[in-house]
Design a protein around this nucleic acid. Structure first.
Lengths: 265, 265
DNA sequence: ACCAATGTTTCACCTGGTGTAACACTGGCG
DNA sequence: CGCCAGTGTTACACCAGGTGAAACATTGGT
């Protein structure tokens, strides 16, 4: 941890003033003084700096301070994935501490699931280097199958059609859709999806077998993302993991969906 | 002027780092070091503070820094009026220096024009105390007439109907719509509107007569706001002011419309 | 014309921000 | 496997720069 890195009080105060300004539509120096408890000369300097930085302005008409309209564009080029990753990260951390096994969260993109965040870095069981945008197969991984199982039928059909045309041998199971659809219906009924036997291994040189389950993060009827739980198959059984952790995993998925809709402060 | 108020370097640097972070979707410490020229320990402290302030985050997966999704909501509760006032303010200042007479900008709201910004504070001719939300009559003021003259016919009709039911004697002219519409058609043809003779006076105790013209700030077919130019009637003639300044006023209106659509950096 | 509330400037104190230098970690290449 | 370049982190000592008390200026109210 970077426990020794100290934060900068002057900057933190500036952010506080900006937030105070953001809460009220406009604020006088006195308002800000009352709200933040900072000395007025300090506030004048902070507000001057915020103005020069283009994030606040002082009306020439009433002398009151407001946030600048330019801040409307802050974060406007972030995608939904960024929001999901950010809101999921602390939930994954907590999950990992509770379950002692790591989780991943990912979204569907261009024919595969793309991993957005992971708590694998907290465990010794890193199978893949943590590079952003790592992609896992739709039909082989628990995460991909969760996405397919819980998506609306139309989207499921579209994706399977796409996979059946793919050059990747792992995707060819989609060419026998009735078998796949039956598996997915079973997953949907159980409330979680499982990975295909033999896909994915743990540890250096992929010696030990891995297993995983995954649940959807639902936004209405759409699957916003999928949340997976992985463990070394030799350590415990799938039935045991489902019994102990499925509820927790589903709760976490619901929490993430809620936080993406209305982020925590 | 508050020429003597110094800005806070530590805060300005923090804002710079935030902006650098905002330009790239994600940035490593090295990226930020290269871009801002700040020492890495300084950056670590700034980033720590931005994280604690909830405006930046560091991905646990790749260790790169990003702006937090929560900044998406910054400035989201500002109205269009705030944006207009902000973008107009510097333009009004410049206009006032060029023309030596003050301008106002206002929007239509609830049966009257509401002043958003003004350069009257730069002149000795302040007729009204600069209180925010000062309202001027639609039919008596140049600004109100400009709004009516250049609005789509349907909106013009709606407003006139509303005014005709008003209790304010100034609004009763709307009860003879054909005369009003003829005046507005003339204003529209000329490209500017004028105030009703006798409305508005300059200076202390309202001794000297005032005159004004106004032009629309157009966003497509809608009148976003109106921009007025006022002067003491005894000092110069309306024909002279139109000849010298109408083009400038229309250019300024176009500039404001452009800046509201895509704010200057 | 007075008074209370708010905004601004000055200035001396000393903390808190700063960068250099040393250290730790990672990944790539031979 | 070991070296090396690139990157991230920690320690530390200096002193610029942030800070708020107090004095001053301005505004608004009745």
């Amino acid at each position: 941890m970077q426990a020794s890195v100290k934060s900068i009080r002057a900057l933190a105060r500036g952010l506080d003033v900006f937030k105070a300004l953001h809460n009220h539509r406009s604020a006088s120096l006195q308002d800000l003084h009352d709200e933040t408890g900072l000395a007025k000369p300090t506030l004048l300097r902070i507000l001057k700096t915020l103005e020069e930085g283009g994030v606040a302005r002082r009306s020439t008409r009433d002398g009151r301070y407001r946030v600048s309209a330019s801040v409307r564009f802050f974060g406007q080029n972030l995608g939904m994935e960024d929001a999901i990753a950010e809101q999921a990260a602390p939930v994954l951390d907590r999950l990992c501490r509770d379950m002692l096994w790591p989780s991943d969260i990912g979204v569907y993109k261009d024919g595969a699931m793309e991993i957005l965040e992971s708590s694998r870095h907290q465990t010794p069981f890193m199978v893949n280097r943590d590079r952003i945008g790592f992609r896992v197969h739709m039909l082989m991984s628990a995460m991909g199958r969760a996405y397919l199982a819980f998506s609306p039928a139309a989207e499921r059909r579209t994706i399977l059609t796409r996979l059946s045309r793919s050059g990747d041998p792992y995707d060819h199971a989609a060419r026998n859709p009735s078998a796949v659809l039956a598996d997915l219906a079973r997953d949907r009924a159980r409330g979680y999806a499982v990975r295909e036997a033999g896909y994915g291994r743990w540890g250096i040189a992929e010696r030990s077998q891995a297993d995983a389950i995954a649940v959807p993060v639902l936004q209405g009827k759409r699957v916003l993302a999928c949340l997976s739980l992985a463990w070394a198959a030799g350590a415990t059984t799938r039935a045991e993991m489902v019994a102990r952790h499925l509820g927790r995993l589903q709760d976490a998925a619901a929490e993430i969906a809620g936080r993406v809709a209305a982020p925590a402060p």
